[in-house]
């Protein structure tokens, strides 16, 4: 009922662990897969070892999370052990990469293709990776440049740029990425940046002051982005942003997502979130007489 083929990735259900959530090491990723995720995404890997920001880095505010972890990474040169251990993962593994220049993106991609991840997610949407103050994913031209360069080194491994809701025209960015060789589109990364100030402390709470907003608060924006992207491209979409329960996931599928990412929901529902969401999707589908999740992908479109 929930079996999903996403770009050749065979998934038992459409839920995917979002990048940066519980994805620091192979053992925990494998546990997330055992706990029910249809696929898992590793935390974004960068060119060089990096510590990330000082704490506080991740907070829960009333309607979601806000984070400025600062893309800590052991660097692709230290990633071999995790990749090797992930060969035994029960669900397909998506690697996520970032860089601060086109050269760095291709360097990281080249550094990890030998490990044959099921797919490579290109993080062109993190507020921490910018060129001339602009996030790569805000401009269709720049996004396409990155995708084209990474596509050239990736051979048969499917690539999937991850887009930012900060783009003025996210559909145009997605279309440019498809043209440049993207096999799928992932949307959305965190929204914002936003900020939390504590009145009593008279200070911003995140050490980085600003951070990306995720969780229930961003669901309407994520749905709108995926809806627009669906109309602009023909490659499959991994939709995420604020998906917390089965009904949210169904709505995300109706907006046009074939696979459905889950990140912040693990705060509210624990590592069991993937199984819970899948079960709730099945319950809804049974009630509605929907036999396969495929039937409803894009159903919200005219």
């Amino acid at each position: 009922m929930l079996e999903t083929d996403f770009c050749g990735l065979k998934m038992k259900n459409p839920t995917v662990l979002a990048s940066g959530v519980m994805g620091c090491n192979a053992a925990l990723l494998k546990r997330v897969a055992r706990e029910g995720a249809g696929a898992v995404t590793m935390k974004s890997i960068g060119p060089k070892e990096k510590e990330g920001h000082k704490n506080p880095t991740v907070l829960e505010w009333e309607h979601g999370l806000i984070n400025a972890v600062g893309l800590p990474t052991a660097g692709y040169k230290n990633a071999e052990k995790e990749f090797k251990e992930l060969e035994k993962c029960k669900s397909p593994v998506i690697a996520s990469i970032y860089g601060s220049s086109i050269e760095e993106f291709t360097e990281v991609a080249e550094g990890i293709i030998g490990f044959e991840p099921a797919m490579i997610e290109i993080n062109i949407s993190c507020p921490n990776t910018k060129r001339e103050g602009q996030i790569f994913g805000t401009s269709p031209e720049v996004a396409a440049e990155v995708v084209k360069a990474v596509a050239e080194v990736c051979g048969k491994i499917p690539i999937m740029p991850k887009l930012t809701p900060q783009a003025n025209n996210i559909a145009a960015v997605a279309a440019a990425c498809e043209q440049a060789g993207a096999n799928a589109i992932c949307a959305i990364n965190t929204l914002g940046p936003g900020m939390v100030i504590d009145a009593d402390a008279r200070k911003p709470v995140l050490a980085n002051k600003f951070g990306g907003v995720s969780g229930p608060a961003i669901k309407p924006i994520a749905l709108r982005c995926v809806y627009q992207i669906y109309e602009a491209v023909s490659v499959p979409i991994l939709g995420l942003g604020g998906i917390s329960n089965g009904r949210d996931a169904i709505e995300m599928a109706m907006a046009g997502a074939t696979a459905i990412g889950v990140g912040s929901a693990t705060f509210y529902r624990g590592i069991e979130a993937f199984k819970l969401i899948s079960d709730e999707m099945k319950t809804w589908m049974k009630e509605q007489g929907v036999k396969s999740i495929k039937e409803i992908v894009g159903a919200a479109h005219d």
Binding site: G20, M22, A27, L28, P72, T266, F267
Partner: peptide, 18 residues
Amino acid sequence: YMRCGFGVCGQCVMDDLM
């Protein structure tokens, strides 16, 4: 070493345990 403290970021992982 911890960041979120509530089982989301995965920083404090030991084997498959947070």
